[in-house]
Computed example of a mutant assay.
Amino acid sequence: MKFQLSCGDAVPGCSARFEEDTQERILELVTVHAMQDHGVPEVGPEMLEAIRGNIVAV
């Protein structure tokens, strides 16, 4: 099973999409993306849980 996340679901206009074998790998990639591309200084536990809620199985 694969998992997918579209950043644009949370950040309008962002076209980044992530598809990986595990939710944990998506969270790792999205953390880096949020910090580098959106200037988020820190991705804390609350933000990670919000992101996890947008990950879908495909």
Rank of each mutant, 00 (worst) to 15 (best):
D9V: 07
K2W: 10
A34K: 03
S15N: 06
I26P: 03
G13E: 11
I55E: 09
K2N: 08
V40H: 08
P45Q: 01
G39P: 02
L48N: 14
R25N: 07
Q36C: 07
I55L: 08
I51P: 03
E19G: 09
E49V: 05
M35R: 07
L48D: 15
V11E: 00
F3K: 12
E49K: 12
G8L: 02
V11R: 00
G13T: 12
D37W: 10
P45H: 02
T22I: 01
G44D: 07
E46L: 12
V56R: 13
L27F: 07
P12E: 06
K2M: 13
P45I: 09
E20R: 10
L5I: 04
E49P: 08
R17W: 11
T31I: 11
S6M: 14
E24G: 04
A50R: 15
C7E: 00
E24D: 06
F18W: 04
E24T: 09
D9G: 09
R52S: 13
V43P: 03
D37K: 11
L5R: 00
G39L: 06
F3G: 04
H33I: 09
Q4M: 13
I55G: 10
D21N: 08
G39C: 04
I55H: 07
V43Q: 04
I26F: 00
G39T: 04
V32K: 06
C7S: 02
P12M: 00
G53C: 15
D21M: 05
G53T: 12
T22G: 02
E46I: 01
G13R: 13
R52Q: 10
I55Y: 09
L5F: 09
R25K: 03
R52V: 08
G8P: 00
V11H: 00
L48Y: 15
A57D: 05
V58C: 15
E24I: 00
K2A: 06
H38A: 08
A57L: 15
I51S: 02
L48G: 15
Q23K: 14
A16S: 11
D9I: 07
I51E: 04
M47F: 14
M1D: 07
H33N: 11
F18Y: 07
M1V: 13
V32A: 05
V11L: 00
V32Q: 08
M35T: 11
A50S: 15
E46D: 04
